[in-house]
Design a protein around this nucleic acid. Structure first.
Lengths: 232, 232
DNA sequence: TGTACATCAGTGAACGCGCGTTCACTGATGTAC
DNA sequence: TGTACATCAGTGAACGCGCGTTCACTGATGTAC
């Protein structure tokens, strides 16, 4: 007896949404199959295991994402505009992210929250396998980014990239909750595009800040404002 | 038959470390009690439930944290230096965080990772109850922060605070892994204080960046460098 | 055209397992008389 | 000082439950002769 067709996609859609809402361990196959309207055993039939389903969910948006990033970088190469500015690269990255979700029936917040979850959940084993799978796109972007910030030491650039990824993953992963807070406290509605518009200038300024002297102790000092003041 | 004394603390230490490593759902009471060297039933005897244990773990470091932040703000009040600068507040916050972990046997990275988990895990119900529990400290800090950034709209300030918390929670929560990468790729060792020294100028510059026009589409624009450039 | 067989998506029920929790119990310590 | 009782930290075994997974099975469709 067949249910209506598209079982695989219906499972992926339901899993994507539930994973984003609740995390991986907190989402059972029974929840997913109930939401998708398919038989419990269908997940193991089509994907083999719950873990394989998780990977399939990520592959469905990370593959187009890395393709789009590659395309965007190609475009810049052809146009011959090298090196890129920090803002351009941030815009390439965020606009690529924005263009991905057409692939699934769920929207951008779900996609972003999954991106955050990949980094924060499940002891990093998921993160590592995804990193190695999309290694070449990742390295290429980092190379261009390095050219865009020649004034930074490798160490400073490393930490600033971490701060940026953290700000993005964290914000996006809780964007639904944050929108609720904004709605009730300030009475405004914010789209994901709006978040990006706030995000780019913040990170761009941080990337260009003149670094403080590293090595001096920070804690317990009386007043170090001058040390950290941005010098344009 | 008594095991050695300090059962409650040994449970809290073990739970803290395992939660930070694996998350809440992925950590069973059997793992915790095995690591702590106590009987399985001791958790429910002393705390009542697994959920109550999670709350106790957070209370043990959030209570001293909010006390320390309050003390630091009091110090500034007495000194009469109002309003504070963004850098001062960031330093107060980061140095308060650095001073907390003496309360448990685990260090700063564990504390930071828990802070990150509280925001990203378990559907926000944990975050909400913690927010209401430490509401007054939180509000006080936000009030001072608002005075330090009068040029920002409430919405911009809200998002920039989220970006900051994200950068901090994300970086600190994976600081061990990140240090490993730094060590093997660039051959340098970095202390938590060093991270803070990188963190403060980055975030301070982001906080002071001139905001972009909100409402304009961001994706696919050719080059908006000038729009986002920091204007001192 | 008709029959036999193979393939495939999907199904329903059951499997064993690890989970959080419960409960009757132990044995040490403190208190009252 | 001695006995009876209460309190308390901790214990060992079992409880029911929901989990991911397995398996024999169904029924539709395609293919060979």
């Amino acid at each position: 007896m067949m249910a209506q067709s598209g079982t695989v996609d219906r499972i992926l859609d339901a899993a994507e949404e539930l994973f984003a809402e609740r995390g991986f361990s907190e989402t059972s196959l029974r929840m997913i199959t109930r939401k998708a309207g398919v038989n419990l055993a269908a997940v193991n039939y089509h994907f083999g295991s719950k873990n394989a389903l998780i990977h399939a969910v990520f592959a469905r948006f990370l593959s187009p994402f890395s393709q789009i990033i590659d395309q965007e970088l190609d475009k810049r190469m052809v146009a011959g505009k090298v090196p890129a500015s920090v803002e351009e690269l941030l815009i390439i990255m965020t606009s690529s992210i924005v263009r991905v979700p057409t692939c699934s029936k769920n929207g951008l917040p779900v996609f972003m929250r999954l991106l955050g979850l990949a980094y924060t959940q499940s002891q990093g084993h998921l993160r590592k396998s995804l990193e190695s799978e999309y290694k070449q796109s990742f390295r290429r972007f980092m190379k261009v980014f390095k050219d865009a910030t020649p004034e930074l030491t490798s160490i400073e650039r490393f930490w600033r990239i971490q701060f940026t990824m953290g700000a993005m993953a964290f914000t996006m992963s809780s964007s639904h909750a944050l929108n609720d807070i904004l709605q009730s406290d300030l009475g405004v509605t914010t789209s994901t595009d709006d978040i990006v518009t706030h995000f780019v200038p913040f990170v761009a300024a941080g990337m260009k800040a003149s670094p403080a002297d590293v090595g001096k102790p920070v804690a317990e000092m009386p007043d170090q404002s001058a040390q950290y003041r941005y010098q344009p």
